[in-house]
Design a protein around this nucleic acid. Sequence first.
DNA 1: ACAAAAGTGTTAAGAATACACCCATGT
DNA 2: ACATGGGTGTATTCTTAACACTTTTGT
Lengths: 226, 226
Amino acid sequence: MKQANTYTPPTLTVDNVIFCLIDNVLNVLLIRRTTEPFQGDWALPGGYNAAGETTTEAMQRILQTKAGVKSDNLQLVEQLYTFDTVARDPRGHAVSVTYMGLGRSVQPAATRSTQSPTFFPVSHLPSLAYDHADIIAYAHSRLQSKITYTNAIFALLPQRFTLSQLQSAYEAVFCRELDKRNFRKKFLSLDLIQETDEMHREGAHRPARLYTFKSQSLQALTRTFD
Amino acid sequence: MKQANTYTPPTLTVDNVIFCLIDNVLNVLLIRRTTEPFQGDWALPGGYNAAGETTTEAMQRILQTKAGVKSDNLQLVEQLYTFDTVARDPRGHAVSVTYMGLGRSVQPAATRSTQSPTFFPVSHLPSLAYDHADIIAYAHSRLQSKITYTNAIFALLPQRFTLSQLQSAYEAVFCRELDKRNFRKKFLSLDLIQETDEMHREGAHRPARLYTFKSQSLQALTRTFD
DNA sequence: ACAAAAGTGTTAAGAATACACCCATGT
DNA sequence: ACATGGGTGTATTCTTAACACTTTTGT
C-alpha cells in the first residue's frame, strides 16, 4: 500500500442514465454538449467528481446543475457500473461511475446552467458522445432484469395507476408485448399492489380501476416476473 | 463540463474478492496488511490505480504483486461495485472499484512483495480492514445470484467433476443443502454439461461419473437454477 | 459383511401458456 | 349504435418439491 509520491489518479466522473415513461414509451434524459470534445453532440448528464464528494452527491449536483432535475424526483437510484477504458475520453484517462435513476414525471427545468435537457425514446436515440450509447444499453438491460425480480417498476409509474398502465410500462421496458390475462393473473398473485376505490375515467370506454403499490421501496419478488 | 483548475480527483483504488473452493468450502483470499492504517489486519488484496491504467489492469497487477496470483488462474472475473464513502479510508477520500474473481485452485505463491496471501472460509472470516467485510458480503451475494441464472459455477470447479462435486459447489455458495435427485434432474435438463467416459474412483464406494461443462464461458440459463 | 458415496423415479401441487368474448363508457 | 379500452376463465403443459432404496466399490 505504499504510495509513490508520483501517484496521479485518473479523472473521476459520474454519468447518469435517467429513465422516465412518456406516453408509455421509455425515455432517457440527454443534454447537448456546449464544449469540446463532442461539442454539439447529445450526451448523458455527467460531470467531474472531486475528492471529498461521494459519487451519489456528485450525481445529485450534476443532475440539478446540468439538467435542472431534482433528485427527489427520482423514485429509485442505483449504481450501475464503472467504465474505465483509457481511450473513452479523448482528453485523457477518465473513469466514470454510472448511475441509473428512475422517475415518474421528471420535468427538466431550464436554468442558466442547464444544457437543453431533453428526453429521447430509448429506441430512437441520436448519435451520442463518448461511450454513452454503451452506457445506456447497459442501463436498459439492467432495468429489464431489475423489473423481472423486483418491484422496481413502481418507480416509473404514478402513485395510482391502472393495470393497463402497469402492463404497458413492462412492455415499454421489455420492448415486447405481454398477454393481458396472464399478465394480470400473475402480477396480482405477486401481492405487490392494492386496489383503490377510485377509477380512472378517460375516453369513450369503460373506466379502469386504480391500484397502488403496497410498498414504494425496492423489494425482491417471491417469483420472478416474466 | 468546464473543469476548474482546482479540480482534484479522489484516490482511486481497486479491491479484489477472489473466491475458490477448498474441500467443498467457499474461501476468499486475504492478505495481512504490513503498513498503517489497519497494520496487521487482514484485508482484500487491493491497491492504487494510477491514471493510464484500467481497473482490470490494476487488478491483475495487484493480485500478482500482493498475493502472487496470476490472473490466468481466474476462470471468471467480474466488476462488482464502486465503493466511495468519504470515510472508508482514514487517510482521505478513496474510491474503490471492486472485482470478483473465481478460480479453481488458486495457489497464492509467496514472493518478496506478497503479504501472507491466505484463503479463509467465507463463513469464518477474521476481522477485516476498511469496509472489506461489506465488500465480501456484497460479492458473496452477487455470486449467489450469478450461479442461479448463469453457468458461472464452472469457474469454481475442475475441468472434470462429479455431480456430487457440482452439487456440493452449489451448496457451498448457497450455504444450504439441496435435494440430490432434484438437483441432478434439473441440472442435467439445463443442457450445460456432458458425460465423459471417465470415472472418479476414490474411497471405499462406487466410482462416480465425471462430467465437463460444454462451454467454459459465461452463459445465461434457459431457466433459472434454484 | 459392512461402510460409504453413487445413482435412480414417481407422484402431487403449483406455475406458465395459449386463447376469445362480454362490459361500461362517451359520442 | 358503435367504437374503445377494461375486464374476465379454462384447459394443457411444464416445473417444482417431496421423498427412500439399490448399486458399486474398498477394506
